[in-house]
Design a protein around this nucleic acid. Structure first.
Lengths: 139, 139
DNA sequence: TTAAAATCTAGAGTGCGATCTAGGTCAAGC
DNA sequence: GCTTGACCTAGATCGCACTCTAGATTTTAA
């Protein structure tokens, strides 16, 4: 489908990134691309593979919890070209720390959840009730 | 603050759980407690320590991504008393898998982000530009 | 050539999870 | 007794990130 010679339609990009055409138009309105997306004579967007690559990174950043506002700052830095690499680095390092913290926090929660699972498993297998929640706490 | 003999005010519980009085009232409307919270003659909520313990677990479950709807199902199971431990276990096991997946996914994203960080760090230190995003992808 | 599928814009709507507002009532300390 | 701060209800509002609608236009395939 779509356009010749590396020209990708919005539908192609949606398929390649999992993002959905509405989301892609939303991304453009929010200035999350690293360049203005050109149009055909008829006004339809023409992407290229590098846009897809960028969107795949965006997906990773979003999945790892980066807010749109931060992604927008990063896109703006990239869009404005060479010379601000230290700023881009600082932004990515900050996000890296955030993700590390998030993983640590999730791991801590996981241990607690796993503890509950073990307790319930033992109870279900053996018929004891120690350590389980009862509907009337102390009263 | 508060009431005598283990009776905790909503403000006490807010402090103890970090949840905020609005959130606590919201939780009650949503039936996320494991028992009906009693009131003073004047109509003010009276919590006890076991409610705080429950809320701390709720915090862990929420932080680890459990939706309110699922938490509500879990609370309903606990509220309805002994006999459904196998269901509670199934719910917790399912959530445990979800959290494990989430950690794996975050870890994968972290590796990619770290790769970018390393690339940018090298660039900033050495002044090369290989592997960095430029504003006009291929054109 | 023409029908069907994809795309366009601007703007409204959705879902989640709180969070706040308004207009009071209750309770603790001086 | 009175002030001050905490608390009450019901319902509105918010922030985020999409997601969809409507109605028109463009593109592709038969």
């Amino acid at each position: 489908m779509s356009r010749n010679a590396d020209g990708l339609s919005i539908g192609d990009v949606a398929k390649a990134t999992g993002l959905g055409v509405h989301a892609l138009r939303f991304f453009e309105r929010e200035e999350l691309f690293i360049r203005p997306i050109p149009r055909t004579a008829g006004g339809q967007r023409v992407y290229e593979p590098a846009d897809v690559e960028w969107l795949l990174l965006c997906n990773r950043l979003r999945e790892s919890g980066m807010p749109i506002a931060t992604l927008k700052r990063f896109a703006r830095l990239v869009r404005s070209g060479p010379g601000n690499e230290a700023e881009r680095l600082a932004l990515l390092e900050e996000h890296e720390r955030t993700v590390q913290d998030r993983i640590a926090n999730l791991t801590a929660s996981l241990e607690i959840i796993h503890g509950k699972v073990v307790t319930y498993r033992k109870h279900v297998e053996e018929g004891t009730a120690a350590g389980l929640w009862s509907p009337t706490p102390s009263a």
